[in-house]
Amino acid sequence: MKATQSNITKKEIVDEIASQTGFTQVKTKVIVEELIDAISNCVIEGNNIELRGFGRFKNKQRKERRTRNPKTGELVNIPAKVRPVFEPSKDLIEKINNVPFDLEEAFVPKDDQERI
């Protein structure tokens, strides 16, 4: 896969894995979806998922807090909640920072719009 500023879809990931492994796209899609389901279910159950060299999926507790409603100015309580988070590994961060990145290519306007 090419490093760009666009979003990569699950289908594109399935296509890439299928072409590299020789598996059919149908089998590869099942494997990718099962992996996503397994990670999701473990995080829902409150478990951390650590994939060495990639990162960790975990839940993070957010405290209750007070904030101001921007429309009315009224103080509002936001209840405590659990948020799923991803923490990249040091290896992944190092790999990302060692990828040559062409700023000129990354910020070329879409639709051939003029730059400001």
Rank of each mutant, 00 (worst) to 15 (best):
51 L>T: 05
68 R>C: 06
61 Q>L: 11
31 I>V: 15
79 P>H: 06
36 I>L: 14
17 I>L: 11
76 V>R: 08
22 G>F: 07
6 S>D: 15
46 G>E: 01
92 L>K: 04
114 E>V: 09
75 L>K: 10
69 N>D: 15
95 K>C: 07
114 E>Q: 13
33 E>A: 12
25 Q>K: 15
106 A>N: 11
74 E>C: 02
94 E>D: 14
116 I>G: 15
96 I>T: 04
116 I>N: 14
62 R>N: 14
5 Q>W: 05
112 D>N: 10
32 V>Q: 06
81 K>C: 13
106 A>C: 12
43 V>C: 04
93 I>G: 03
16 E>P: 10
72 T>M: 08
114 E>S: 08
85 V>I: 12
78 I>Q: 02
29 K>L: 12
12 E>Y: 01
24 T>R: 08
108 V>T: 15
32 V>T: 02
103 L>G: 02
33 E>W: 00
78 I>H: 02
43 V>M: 02
68 R>H: 11
88 P>I: 04
104 E>S: 10
64 E>L: 12
60 K>N: 04
33 E>D: 15
37 D>I: 00
100 P>V: 06
51 L>P: 03
60 K>G: 03
33 E>F: 00
101 F>C: 05
55 G>L: 09
57 F>W: 05
81 K>I: 00
65 R>W: 12
101 F>D: 01
52 R>C: 01
59 N>T: 13
59 N>L: 14
88 P>V: 07
110 K>S: 10
69 N>Y: 07
105 E>V: 08
88 P>D: 04
9 T>Y: 01
43 V>K: 00
58 K>Y: 11
84 P>W: 13
53 G>T: 02
63 K>A: 15
2 K>H: 11
63 K>V: 09
44 I>Q: 09
88 P>Y: 02
96 I>N: 09
20 Q>E: 10
44 I>D: 09
114 E>W: 13
83 R>M: 11
49 I>A: 03
52 R>Y: 01
64 E>P: 13
76 V>F: 05
106 A>W: 01
98 N>C: 07
11 K>I: 03
2 K>G: 09
42 C>V: 01
76 V>S: 09
103 L>K: 09
38 A>P: 00
104 E>D: 13
112 D>P: 00
45 E>W: 01
11 K>T: 06
84 P>T: 06
49 I>W: 00
90 K>M: 08
65 R>E: 08
16 E>M: 09
77 N>T: 15
22 G>K: 04
68 R>Q: 14
76 V>M: 15
72 T>I: 08
11 K>N: 07
40 S>D: 13
71 K>L: 06
67 T>H: 06
106 A>I: 00
14 V>H: 03
27 K>H: 10
22 G>T: 07
26 V>Q: 09
100 P>F: 06
98 N>P: 02
105 E>W: 10
22 G>C: 06
87 E>I: 06
87 E>M: 04
61 Q>W: 02
47 N>M: 04
46 G>Y: 00
8 I>T: 14
81 K>R: 11
101 F>Y: 10
92 L>V: 03
47 N>Q: 11
87 E>P: 07
9 T>L: 03
56 R>V: 12
17 I>P: 09
49 I>D: 05
76 V>H: 06
6 S>L: 08
85 V>C: 03
30 V>A: 05
109 P>A: 05
26 V>G: 11
107 F>W: 06
4 T>S: 15
51 L>Y: 01
74 E>R: 05
99 V>R: 08
41 N>Y: 05
42 C>H: 09
37 D>C: 00
